[in-house]
């Protein structure tokens, strides 16, 4: 039972990583840059959600809308101000700028929100667990423990937060796949990621496509922020950096630039992390995650779904 619960937790955490990794991988695929400020957009999303959720005037749906809007606009603004002027600069200049943006966001948060951690209230606070299984007595969904009076504890509990993270991520990933493979704007993104110059010759506005990519990636980060803070409620100005780096690992693990790769990489990484925590060592779990990255890079440098670039002459 514990193993099942660990796997579900891993999938849930992994779904959140996958949402973040999608932002990394899409931006890498289309703008050919690593946006190391991506993790900090999650942090901004966390504070946006925290502030609006704690305000009395703001209903939860509006708080979610505001969080997604704030992150989307932030992504677009960062791209316009910091990255666009460097479009034809060497990759190193862009990379360093991205790191600079990351520190800028963290320090703005430090100045305005202080270093004191905030306790994030889950968006499904007060909702009973999604599933509780009692050996020999069956399972209950979305109900308080019916055997509490008898002193019986559930043998397997899946919290609503865990369930929500998986469901929301699956819906978003299906929607994103449909958008990319079925719509004109999505096809334009694929074309830009393969050959920017040729895409321009088709009449595709490359700058517009890059802006759209940043907008989508940042919106996904906002959703990830709310899901993550609901499950892991401690919010500080550096909240985004570790999940950001792990999602980057997930993107590389899956094959950077590949959208299905980011999804698979994210989920696998989440499972590895939770299993490492449960069965090896809590302290070493992060080290194990990065060890996985090193092994992947040695064995298959292009990642699970990464493709070699074949050029036909």
């Amino acid at each position: 039972m514990k193993f099942i619960s660990d796997i579900v937790d891993g999938i849930s955490l992994g779904s959140i990583y996958a949402l973040i990794a999608l932002g990394y991988t899409m931006v890498y695929g289309i703008a050919k840059m690593l946006n190391f400020a991506h993790g900090d957009i999650i942090m901004v999303g966390g504070y946006a959600a925290f502030i609006t959720l704690s305000a009395n005037w703001c209903p939860m749906w509006l708080s979610l809308v505001i969080t997604v809007t704030v992150c989307t606009l932030l992504g677009i603004i960062i791209e316009k101000l910091a990255y666009r002027p460097l479009r034809s600069s060497p990759p190193l200049a862009v990379l360093i700028t991205a790191i600079g943006v990351s520190y800028l966001l963290q320090n703005i948060a430090l100045l305005t929100q202080s270093a004191n951690p905030r306790m994030f209230t889950s968006i499904v606070n007060g909702v009973p667990p999604f599933l509780q299984v009692f050996k020999g007595r069956g399972a209950v969904f979305f109900k308080e423990n019916p055997y509490k009076a008898e002193g019986i504890k559930s043998d397997l509990t899946i919290s609503t937060e865990t369930f929500l993270a998986i469901i929301v991520s699956v819906i978003i990933m299906v929607a994103l796949s449909l958008f990319i493979n079925k719509t004109k704007a999505g096809k334009a993104m694929l074309a830009c990621s393969e050959d920017r110059g040729a895409a321009q010759l088709m009449g595709i506005n490359v700058n517009g496509t890059i802006t759209l990519t940043f907008a989508i990636g940042s919106a996904l980060a906002a959703v990830a922020a709310v899901l993550m803070c609901s499950s892991y409620p401690l919010l500080t100005p550096s909240t985004g950096s570790m999940p950001g780096i792990k999602a980057f690992v997930a993107a590389v693990f899956g094959g950077i630039g590949s959208i299905p790769g980011a999804m698979i990489g994210g989920v696998l990484l989440g499972i590895i992390e939770i299993l490492a925590k449960a069965y090896i060592s809590t302290q070493l779990s992060d080290a194990i995650v990065f060890l996985v990255l090193i092994i992947v890079l040695i064995v298959k440098p292009t990642g699970i779904m990464g493709r070699k670039i074949n050029e036909k002459v």
């Binding site: 096809k187 074309a191 393969e194 050959d195």
Partner: peptide, 18 residues
């Protein structure tokens, strides 16, 4: 400079992007 990862039809459709 065709889009190698897209199908022939998808390439042609992108040609009519505008």
């Amino acid at each position: 400079r065709v889009f190698a990862q897209l199908s022939v039809l998808e390439n042609l459709t992108l040609g009519a992007y505008t």
